[in-house]
């Protein structure tokens, strides 16, 4: 489990460590709530975990921290009919705000990868 360390403030009694997994969960929960997102796309490992009944809240999220900056890659399946650039912008804004509010860290980039579009059944 990789993580990032930052000192909260001079008056604090120690350091605060937030793992990448926690940031991924925060980002995942925020991203899935955005209109136009059908689901997160977790790849093979995500599919296996789902088949085995394991709920993965960070599915479709990859987090990288460099210093106090966070780089987030978000893999989604879009809803049919959604305007992807708008959806992507909304995800970026929502994820950035949520992660920054909850962790105090700066989100440098939130890159959206639209893996597929959900085709409604007839």
């Amino acid at each position: 489990m990789s993580g990032n360390e930052l000192i909260a403030n001079e008056e604090s009694y120690g350091q605060l460590k937030i793992s990448d997994d926690v940031i991924a969960i925060i980002a995942g929960l925020a991203a899935v709530e955005v209109n136009g997102v059908f689901s997160m796309s977790g790849g093979l490992t995500g599919d296996i975990a789902e088949v085995l009944g394991i709920r993965n809240l960070s599915k479709g999220i990859r987090v990288e921290t460099k210093g106090d900056k966070v780089y987030i890659n978000i893999y989604i399946i879009a809803e049919f009919g959604a305007r992807i650039p708008e959806v992507a912008w909304n995800i970026q804004e929502t994820v950035k705000k949520t992660v920054e509010r909850m962790t105090g860290m700066k989100v440098a980039e939130a890159n959206i990868h639209v893996q597929s579009v959900n085709i409604p059944r007839e």
């Binding site: 912008w89 939130a110 890159n111 639209v114 893996q115 597929s116």
Partner: peptide, 21 residues
Amino acid sequence: ISNAGGTVSISSQTLESLAKL
């Protein structure tokens, strides 16, 4: 596509699904 928040990548599968539908 690049924007202020990062990049947006749209997969081949997305385009194929849209065209097929």
